[in-house]
């Protein structure tokens, strides 16, 4: 059996789960981008008067920060979706163990769970881009679509190592490390809110190495139309490698967790 058809067997489960929770998430998925863009882009941005050359080519702070917010949002969604729900499936509800007693294999279980995360990311990103678009932060429709696709990749690429970590952790205290050392510093210092050239040289290099910076820069290039093929390919390669390598790690760790 291909893992594709095995993962599809779990679609009814995830659909049932989604039907149960979508009402709660739909309101916040519209509200969150609106609040962010108003607070950071419009209001805070109103105080920022900078030359476009100092904003990586953005005509306004609003246009600068919008792609940063988009990428940061998919990262946060991905990290949330690959931490507590995963621990629930391995520890609190033990749903993965139930699945593992059926013909499903660790690979199939991981793929279905990750596919579900991907769908959440797609929905979140579409809403986010739709809310941002009227503020004129994308230079064109293709730019908006490009930014949308890339932001989904950013979420997926950051979510993958977190998922790989989460399938093996014993309890939720392991997650505070991810949020404190991973999510919050990246969110604040990886170029979402200000050009990282403002950091000291050492910190700038550190910021450049983070996955979120790779994603923010790529998303921003697309939404502003400031595409540079060389750096863009580096960013894409970085994110794809993260995705592929940690998918393998995730499947191996999940198989180990289930086969005790």
């Amino acid at each position: 059996m291909s893992t594709w058809s095995m993962a599809l067997r779990q679609s009814d489960y995830y659909w049932t789960l989604y039907r149960r929770t979508w009402k709660g998430s739909v309101f916040s998925s519209f509200l969150t981008p609106l609040l962010y863009v108003l607070a950071m882009g419009v209001l805070l941005g109103g105080f920022v008067e900078a030359d476009p050359s100092r904003l990586e080519g953005a005509p306004s702070y609003l246009a600068f920060v919008a792609p940063g917010l988009l990428a940061a949002q998919t990262m946060q969604t991905a990290v949330f979706e690959t931490t507590y729900p995963v621990l629930s499936a391995t520890k609190w509800q033990r749903v993965y163990f139930g699945m593992n007693a059926t013909p499903l294999r660790a690979l199939d279980i991981a793929n279905a769970a990750l596919g579900f995360v991907l769908l959440r990311l797609v929905l979140i990103a579409i809403v986010f881009v739709a809310v941002l678009a009227p503020f004129g932060v994308f230079v064109s429709v293709p730019a908006a679509i490009g930014a949308l696709l890339v932001s989904i990749l950013v979420g997926a690429a950051i979510g993958m190592p977190v998922y790989a970590y989460a399938v093996g952790v014993p309890n939720e205290s392991s997650f505070s490390l991810i949020f404190r050392l991973g999510v919050i510093p990246q969110f604040l210092f990886s170029g979402a809110f200000f050009p990282i050239s403002n950091l000291s040289p050492a910190l700038e290099w550190l910021a450049r190495l983070t996955p979120l910076y790779q994603g923010v820069d790529l998303t921003r290039m697309l939404s502003l139309g400031t595409w540079h093929t060389g750096p863009a390919l580096v960013h894409l390669a970085y994110l794809l490698v993260l995705l592929v390598v940690f998918h393998r790690v995730a499947v191996r760790r999940l198989a180990k967790r289930l086969a005790f």
Binding site: Q10, S11, Q93, F97
Partner: peptide, 22 residues
């Protein structure tokens, strides 16, 4: 140890589980 999904209904638990077998 039960590995039922407590957020799903009784019937839903059986339904989604049966689907895992194709």
């Amino acid at each position: 140890e039960d590995s039922l999904d407590t957020e799903l209904t009784v019937a839903e638990n059986l339904y989604v589980y049966g689907r895992y077998f194709g």
